[in-house]
């Protein structure tokens, strides 16, 4: 298991859980980071942060800080 921010560009993983139970965690849940969801790291911004992800048919930018909260099953 690893965290979302550690995916390599172009690879994807499946969400296992979200760390914590605060507003950020709930917002990540609202955005569709549910267990089993496939998330691809599309690209990092030129300065390394934030990161663009693809999930559930749409694209989302998250800062590393938030991406770290999403635990994923590492790509095989």
């Amino acid at each position: 298991m690893t965290t979302l921010d550690r995916l390599k560009t172009g690879t994807s993983g499946a969400v296992v859980s979200i760390d914590g139970d605060d507003a950020i965690a709930r917002r990540l849940n609202d955005l569709g980071f549910w267990p089993g969801t496939h998330v691809e790291l599309v690209r990092k911004a030129p300065l390394g942060d934030p990161i663009e992800f693809s999930l559930r048919g749409y694209r989302l930018a998250l800062r590393k800080q938030e991406a770290r909260r999403v635990m994923i099953e590492a790509p095989t």
Partner: peptide, 11 residues
């Protein structure tokens, strides 16, 4: 702020 975040859709 409580916590500066960026959770933004790229439409």
């Amino acid at each position: 702020g409580q916590h500066s975040t960026l959770m933004m859709e790229l439409p």
